[in-house]
Amino acid sequence: MRRLVIAAAAALSLSAVAAPQPALAAEATVAPPAQNWSFGGLFGTFDRASAQRGFQVYKEVCAACHGLRHLSYRHLGVLGFSAAEITAIAAEYKVPDFDDDGQPIERDARPSDRFRSPFANEAAGRAANNGAYPPDLSVIVKARADGANYLYALLTGYGNPPAGMQLGEGMHYNEYFPGHQIAMARPLNDEQVTYADGTANTTSQMSRDLTTFLAWAAEPEMEDRKRMGVKVMLFLLILTGLMYASKRKLWSDLH
């Protein structure tokens, strides 16, 4: 007890006089503006058409550098792709396997295979990208604060650096990336992808579709979760009411 008091008193007096600890330089971050998402709110669901277009953007643009390794091609069925379409999509990729004689081969991917990552490992990814690693995008929306809004803001946030700002070698100005310098060049430009359904292929539309797709990729359970949540909450609400009434009734003879 006495030791504690002494230790506490000593530490307290120390802390009262000591200078503040060296501060971590807080990285410049700008809060992304909130967008209206189909999957937001308590009852939100993923806009299937938008997510399908988002998959197209991912496949034609981002997949050159970013993996999606937690997803299998078969998962695309949830977004409304038919079994034949999924088989065809998978068959565009080769995956390593062994033949019947145990010899290593490359075969067409099947719906049950995981999405093929563009690089064999992190080092290969860095080597191809000027030392920066393009992260896997499977859970990117969960892995950033305010993920969906941030992703959309990042993709549409490229521009010229403010006067006086020196960009590093091979770096690009982005308003929403922490520190404003990102190694990824602006990936989406107007009319880059041609949508089969005739939707306008502006940067903001493609970013919106891609974000919807990646939000689904990060939380494919979200629709089930919210649906079940509504039922559970209703059930609990009724049960709580019943329990409260029982409690009142039982206790009424005590007063």
């Binding site: 230790a7 506490a8 000593a10 530490a11 120390l14 802390s15 000591a18 200078a19 600890q21």
Partner: peptide
């Protein structure tokens, strides 16, 4: 809150 590591841990 304590500038010394040991002090912080003890507290």
């Amino acid at each position: 809150a304590v500038p010394s590591k040991l002090g912080g841990v003890l507290l």
